[in-house]
Simulated scan of single mutants.
Amino acid sequence: MELNESVVAGAIEDGYGDGVEVAADAALIVVDVQKGFAEPYWGRRNNPGAEGNIAALIDAWQASGRPVVFVRHDSVSPRSPLRPGQPGNGFQDLVEERRGKGSGPELLVTKSVNSAFYGEPDLDAWLRGAGVRQLVVVGVQTNMCAETTARMGGNLGYDVLFPLDATHTFDTTGPFGWTLTADELARATAVSLHADRFARVVRTADVLRGL
């Protein structure tokens, strides 16, 4: 299932994505790009291009010496493929083969909740200690840990960029039997982040041009 161009375009209306400027010390936050998310456990996903966009952003950040934060979800659920000790807890190859390869600062954060700001070590303290004021949040899932991290980053006063096409999620069933497709959830995340200015929803290409 593909993240349609119309979904991305609708999420960045009113000029969002135009003239993106990326700070010289902006931090890339790579959320939960783990092997377990490739398992059938999660159901049908969207945006098969997410991993390629995430890889391109990591490469660009590392080449420029900007800080990169890799976030890993250590699930406490006994059924989750992401729980520690399981193969699915590990990073996908596109992340693992890039860790430690950049010339800039790098941090590994582990967490068991949605926000990377509630992990170990303290992400906010690390970012502020480095003088970082701008974040670019990518990863999995769009409407879960990526969105929650972006929202909290906005609440903490960071300028947050959210490249929607460098995230993906899964079809989900909620209360009353309501079901939303992955693309519908991605659209909801984009509109919600945009409307309340938690983050600027952009494309990967916008960010790469702004480096």
Rank of each mutant, 00 (worst) to 15 (best):
G43E: 08
G43R: 11
R44V: 12
N46D: 13
N47S: 05
G49L: 10
A50Y: 13
N53K: 05
N53P: 00
A55S: 14
A55L: 08
A55K: 12
A55M: 02
A56W: 01
L57F: 03
L57H: 04
I58E: 00
A60Y: 05
A60H: 07
A60W: 05
Q62H: 13
Q62L: 11
S64G: 06
G65H: 13
G65Y: 08
G65M: 11
P67F: 10
P67H: 07
V68P: 12
V68A: 13
V69G: 08
F70G: 01
F70H: 10
V71M: 04
R72T: 11
R72L: 09
H73I: 03
S75E: 07
S75H: 08
S75K: 11
V76N: 12
V76M: 12
S77L: 11
R79Y: 14
R79C: 02
S80A: 10
S80V: 10
P81Q: 10
P81I: 10
L82R: 06
L82G: 02
L82H: 03
R83P: 06
P84A: 15
P84M: 14
P84F: 13
G85Y: 08
G85E: 09
G85T: 07
Q86F: 09
Q86G: 05
P87Q: 12
P87K: 12
N89M: 03
N89C: 11
F91T: 00
F91W: 14
F91C: 00
Q92F: 00
D93W: 05
V95Y: 03
E96V: 03
E96L: 14
E96I: 01
E96N: 04
E97R: 15
R99Y: 00
R99D: 00
R99S: 00
R99N: 00
G100D: 04
G102W: 07
G102V: 08
S103P: 00
G104Y: 05
G104K: 09
P105M: 12
L107C: 01
V109H: 01
T110L: 02
T110H: 11
S112D: 08
S115Q: 03
A116D: 05
A116S: 15
F117M: 08
F117I: 07
Y118C: 04
Y118H: 12
G119I: 07
G119Y: 08
E120T: 12
D122H: 02
D124L: 04
W126D: 00
L127I: 01
L127Q: 02
R128T: 06
R128M: 03
R128W: 01
G129W: 01
A130C: 00
A130N: 04
G131W: 02
G131V: 07
V132Q: 06
V132C: 11
Q134R: 07
Q134V: 02
V136W: 09
V138F: 01
G139M: 04
G139L: 01
V140I: 15
T142H: 06
N143R: 05
N143K: 04
M144I: 15
M144R: 10
M144S: 13
C145A: 15
A146M: 06
E147V: 06
E147N: 10
E147S: 11
E147R: 15
R151K: 15
M152K: 10
G153I: 10
G153C: 11
G154T: 13
N155D: 14
N155A: 14
N155Q: 11
N155M: 13
N155G: 05
G157K: 08
D159R: 15
D159S: 11
V160M: 08
V160W: 09
V160F: 03
F162K: 10
P163W: 06
P163C: 07
L164Q: 05
T167K: 06
